[in-house]
Design a protein around this nucleic acid. Structure first.
Lengths: 200, 200
DNA sequence: TGTTTACGAAACGGGACCGTTGCGTATCGG
DNA sequence: CCGATACGCAACGGTCCCGTTTCGTAAACA
């Protein structure tokens, strides 16, 4: 037994390929992005698409769920910067970020997974929710709470109802709105409709 | 060749069992209700759950998709009666119907299928949308159009935006709201929040 | 150079379903 | 009773994927 040089113990032998690992994650996300559900994803398909042997996958992850958890974790969540000037502007920024993400194939299908398979893959979803959904929900909540504090929003509705109306309207458009990309002014129109109300 | 009695030609031999047919449809809906996606449904599982031979299924439907189309078609769509007095009351009726349906295990999972698998099973979804989604959307649209005509709703938003805000808020609650059944006054609160707006 | 570990490829036995076929039985009309 | 058709059941060969193992090769270190 030799003395390890630095703090990190460098194991003997050939090191694991970073490139293979990236390729596996990418292949996984690509397949999810092509509309695959969790149960339809097969290790063989991922390995084939990544140009990798199955062994290389099993060496790193002990189950399909573990792999998917790691793959989803690499999806970064860059929330848009908020000016903090008016609540209306910040809400538009947040909802417009939702619109842009909905235009991305990967993000859209990941959202599908989040909505459909939560029951069957609870710990996968728990982690994914924490990583991707909660930050957005929290950002929206904090803007709404600020609006309630400054009087820009009604205090009697509750934060959840405000979140529901705003993000629900965006969600509806991504799912059942006219086909094609969402119009670039959608976020602004949604916020104005929600803030001023449907009644005159 | 004998003369057929009535107009309907009664084929010779043992008639197909109505009971088996019902059992197959029920088993299919049950499995979907248990969270199965379309691709995970297997004919063998359906046959087993229905207490039926696979042959009995293949004799009636040539593909899994055909069976699912028929099964989904049996889900009735009893829209609530509308008083036609105030637009607000009719909107609450429609949204409360959504709330009640969301509490039903079968309907909830059918909704999941509609939202997730539309890309992969287009003709299945086309038929299902026509049968289950469109009538509700149309009912909502017609109430909203009436509201615009009578001046109870703003005319400048467009019908789609109103639909999005109202049903989007309900959709959000069913998916990401607090766990458990939706509160019984949810529809009323959603309608009031949407009509009067989030701003004071 | 030799050791150690990772690599891609291929093959394994096993399981789930597929869609089909044959079997013995049940249920209809004639 | 007879012919026709449907029934449940079991079995078929075929495909896909599982998770594991073996193989020859590649890349790190001593």
């Amino acid at each position: 037994m030799t003395i390890q040089e630095s703090g990190t113990a460098r194991p003997a032998g050939r090191p694991r390929s970073e490139k293979a690992e990236k390729a596996i994650i990418e292949a996984t996300l690509d397949l999810i992005g092509d509309g695959m559900g969790v149960s339809e994803l097969s290790i063989e398909a991922i390995a084939s698409k990544a140009g990798v042997g199955k062994t290389t996958i099993y060496r790193r992850w002990s189950s399909k769920e573990d792999l998917i958890v790691d793959a989803l974790s690499t999806l970064k969540a860059p929330l848009p910067p908020l000016t903090g000037v008016s609540v209306r502007d910040d809400l538009i920024s947040l909802l417009d970020a939702m619109r842009k993400e909905a235009g991305n194939r990967r993000n859209r299908c990941v959202m599908n997974i989040a909505m459909n398979e939560a029951d069957r893959y609870p710990r996968l979803m728990e982690r994914f929710m924490k990583r991707a959904v909660e930050p957005r929900k929290e950002a929206l909540r904090s803007v709404i709470e600020r609006g309630i504090a400054t009087g820009e929003l009604r205090a009697d509705l509750g934060v959840d109802m405000c979140v529901a109306v705003l993000s629900g309207a965006m969600l509806w458009h991504t799912k059942w709105g006219p086909a094609g990309d969402l119009p670039s002014d959608l976020a602004e129109r949604v916020v104005d409709a929600a803030l001023e109300g449907l009644a005159p």
